[in-house]
Amino acid sequence: MSHQPLRSIAVVLPLLLLAACGEEVRDSTTRGVTPQADAIDGLFRFSVTLGAVIWLLVMGLLAVPIWRSWRRRGGDAEVAPTDRGPVRLDAPASEVDGAIAVADPTHVAQAEADHRVRNRLIWVGGIILPALVLVTLLVYSSVVGRAAAHVPEDGELVVDVIGHMFWWEVIYEDEAVITANEIVVPVDRPVRFNLTTEDVIHSFWIPRIHGKVDMIPGRTNTFTFTATETGDFRGNCAEFCGIAHAQMVAFVRVVEQDEFDAWVAAQQQPATTGASTDGEQVFIEAGCAACHAVAGTDAVARVGPDLTHLASRRTLAAGIVPNERERLEQLIIEPQAVKPGIPMPAAQLSADELEALLDYLEGLE
């Protein structure tokens, strides 16, 4: 037998383990920043630990009969065949036990002992232990479910998140703010996300904030959290929704309350741009306004992301590329090259028109 497969495993397995290591905890499911995420992580750790204990116990139970079998074979080898006495090979089945008892009475005692051990294993390992494990997991899961469930609180911030192919629409109804893909919330304040979708099923998941929650057409699912730490926390769509599913990224940015208030005040203002009106005219005439809205202009469509404050966002194309002029240009003229499957058509623009449009979009603070 060749040892090549074993060598390959010995090389590949450490490499896979190293690939999972890193200093960043951007998407970690074990480094929550909310009580809800910590509760879910606790259930995960408990389940893994319990599973490891059960596995060790089962391996131990399997080792016992193997060890006894080896021991019995060693003892049988020391007994000469003549010591066992004659055994009738043509005896009927009803007389076999008697013949074995006459030949070696210890076989009967050993068989009875093995039978008792098997009965105990069936009752303990097959009925009692699984029942205890399932009941324990049920109770713990119920406790975690209650801790992670939505509980209305006074003063909570309500954010509507709507899934699209393949981006996230974000609406702060009470604050009259509409944005996309990047969600800003204050630290130490209850936040409620209302989740739904305009097309297919999506699943909203920010690992360090909360568990996965499905977004189903015609239905609104809700979850609540209170972030205890500031920072940027990345998430993804966790339900396959089409060709660009893996490139449907969302960010939740947790900031201090004062910074959040300032961000809301800026988002409530109409788009401001220092560029000439040439870029805005290109935006309208090239068909961009048929899908995108820019507050304070004639562009009011809601098919694609709202671009009112596009220049203030850190990323483009639902979080997959940085918000840079080169990336923005490529997204306009070759959207499929940036994000395959995106329903955005390529714009047919002259060089001057493209430059004017880029200047306009980069000025939308």
Rank of each mutant, 00 (worst) to 15 (best):
V25E: 10
V87D: 07
T49E: 00
L50A: 01
G74L: 14
A80G: 03
G32T: 12
V11L: 15
V53C: 08
G32K: 02
L16E: 05
R88H: 11
S47D: 12
V33I: 15
I66C: 10
D41Y: 08
R26P: 04
T34F: 06
R73D: 12
G42T: 02
W55C: 00
A80I: 06
F46G: 00
V53W: 03
L16I: 11
P81E: 12
V79M: 09
V25P: 01
G32P: 04
G22M: 08
R73H: 11
L15S: 09
V48L: 13
G74A: 15
L62D: 06
P65E: 06
V33N: 00
A10S: 12
R26A: 15
C21F: 11
V48D: 03
L18V: 15
W67E: 07
G32C: 05
E24W: 08
V64H: 11
D38G: 03
L89F: 05
R84H: 14
S69D: 09
L56R: 01
P81C: 07
I54Y: 01
V11D: 09
E24P: 07
A37N: 07
L13A: 15
L89N: 05
D41S: 13
V58S: 01
L16K: 11
E23L: 06
I54K: 00
A52L: 04
P14I: 06
P5T: 13
V25H: 10
V79K: 13
T49M: 05
V25N: 05
L17W: 12
A91T: 12
L56W: 01
F46D: 01
R88P: 06
C21T: 09
D41H: 09
G60M: 07
D83V: 10
V53H: 03
A63E: 05
L56G: 01
R88G: 05
H3Q: 10
R88Y: 05
G42P: 06
G75Y: 08
E24H: 13
V48H: 09
R71Q: 15
D90T: 12
G60N: 03
T29H: 04
A77F: 13
D90S: 11
D41G: 08
G60V: 01
S28E: 14
A10Q: 13
F46K: 02
P65C: 12
R84D: 08
E78S: 07
L16C: 15
I54L: 04
G85P: 02
V53M: 05
G60R: 06
V53P: 00
T49F: 03
G22V: 03
G74T: 11
G22Y: 10
T49G: 04
A63P: 02
E24T: 14
L18Y: 02
V79T: 14
H3F: 13
A52V: 00
W55R: 00
I9A: 13
F44D: 03
G42C: 03
F46S: 04
G75E: 13
L13Q: 12
